[in-house]
Structure formats: C-alpha cells, structure tokens
C-alpha cells in the first residue's frame, strides 16, 4: 500500500484532535476523534447500530440490483441505435439532472410509507446513471474494431456480444460506481425523512434530535466507511476484470 495514502487521513485526525483539545470549537458540537472512534466500536456491539447498518445495506443492495436490471439492458439497447438514444436523450438528461430527493413525495404517493418507496426512488435515480453511461460506452465503441469484425463476417448479434458489450464495459463500470454511491446517498436521506424503524439515516437523525453527538458522529463515520468500502470494491473489481481498459 502506498504510504502517502495515509497522510491525508492522519493530517485530518491531527487537526481535528488539536481543535478539540484546545476547545477551538465547542466540544459539544465537535467531540475529540478518539472518543468518536471508541463510540463507534461501542455501537457495533450489543444494542448498537448493526441492525440499522444491515437494513441500510439491504436497501442499497436491492435498489442497486434493481437499477442494474433495468439500466444495463436499456443502456445496451439504446447505445446500439444512436437514433433511438437521441429520441430519449432529453428525458434521460432531464431526470438525471432532477434531484432524486425532489421526487420523494411522488414515490411516497405511489408506494406509500414503505421500504418500497425508498428503494424505488434510489433505484430510479441510479438506473438513469447506468443507462446513460452504458449507452455512451456502446455508442463510443471503436469503429475500427466493429469494422474488423464485420469484414470477418460477424453478424449483428456477434458484434454486439463480442465487441460492443466489451467496449462499453469501462464506461458501464463508471456508471455502476456512481450509481452505487448515489443509491447509498438516497437511501440514507430517505431513511431520515420517511418513516422508518431502522437504518443508518434514521439513527443519525435520532442521535441528533436527542443530542447524542458522539453517537451521531460515529454513525456518520459508519456511513462514510460503507460508502468508501463500496467504492473500493468497485476499484478492485475494475482492476481485476477491466485490466485491458484504455489499452
């Protein structure tokens, strides 16, 4: 591991610890980092946030899988026909630019105050990112490779399977990575504001209301760790499966 990677976190920890020690900010709002890390370990024990963590992960996983199931095939199909893509491009761009949070009320109306509404709103916004990136990847496949396959006598479905699908993968991965992060963001936010019994978002807001500031920070830290771990998993998968990307 590159040692330089540790410099940033170490510096942040140091500045935070000094700020807390010198009471530069009211310790009620900014407790020292060691006590927050201790609190996080405490919360991972009995009666802690583990069930909330699992609920959040489950919602993120379901919404992400739903987004892939819809977004990936749609992106592949739209990418193969530029005319088809152009005809829906405005819709994709419009809804991609609309904040997902603005659509909560709509999804609440349709799905009620249930897990389904949270999952649906996260899946909807993530699917759009996957569609856009996958279609883009297919459309920007290297023409020379397609021509080479055509001259070899490849049929349309063979070109799709052997060339276009693979060509789109690096860009698809960019989409999947952003979509996973967005799913987590949307799920955490919806847990805060739509009636939920469990979830990291719910815990963060509960701890804030009851002024358990250490626990609030620890739960935020947990959410950050989840997001980072997801991102890292994608980076590692990319290195393993897309070793050829850009070559």
């Amino acid at each position: 591991m590159n040692k330089r990677l540790l410099i940033g976190p170490a510096a942040l920890f140091l500045v935070w610890a000094i700020t807390a020690k010198l009471h530069l900010i009211d310790p009620f709002f900014l407790p020292d980092p060691v006590s927050i890390i201790g609190k996080l370990f405490g919360l991972l024990g009995h009666d802690g946030i583990v069930p909330d963590l699992l609920s959040t992960l489950w919602r993120v996983a379901v919404s992400f899988i739903a987004a892939i199931t819809i977004g990936l095939p749609a992106g592949l199909v739209l990418g193969t026909s530029e005319r088809l893509y152009r005809s829906v491009e405005f819709l994709i761009d419009f809804f991609r630019s609309t904040p997902a949070t603005a659509m909560f009320p709509l999804f609440l109306l349709v799905f009620g105050v249930t897990d389904a509404s949270k999952i649906a709103v996260a899946a909807f916004s993530s699917a759009l990112i996957i569609v856009f990136n996958t279609a883009y990847g297919v459309m920007h496949a290297k023409k020379s490779r397609i021509l080479a396959a055509r001259i070899m006598g490849a049929k349309r479905h063979q070109i799709f399977r052997w060339i276009l699908f693979w060509e789109s993968l690096p860009q698809t991965f960019v989409g999947l990575r952003s979509a996973a992060s967005l799913s987590l963001v949307v799920i955490i936010v919806t847990e805060m504001f739509i009636g939920t019994a469990s979830g990291l978002g719910r815990k963060i807001i509960d701890f804030q209301i009851t002024y358990e500031i250490n626990a609030m920070y620890a739960t935020i830290l947990m959410a950050g760790i989840v997001g980072y771990a997801m991102n890292l998993a994608f980076v590692l998968a990319e290195r393993r499966f897309l070793h050829w990307s850009g070559k």
Partner: peptide, 15 residues
C-alpha cells in the same frame, strides 16, 4: 476475404 488494417492497435481486442 482477409483484411489487414493499417491501425493494428485499434483493431485488436484488448479484452
């Protein structure tokens, strides 16, 4: 028919 392109890098499949 066989065709050999000038731009070999772009016609091989890196995956």
């Amino acid at each position: 028919l066989g065709y050999i392109f000038q731009n070999y890098r772009e016609s091989l499949l890196p995956w």
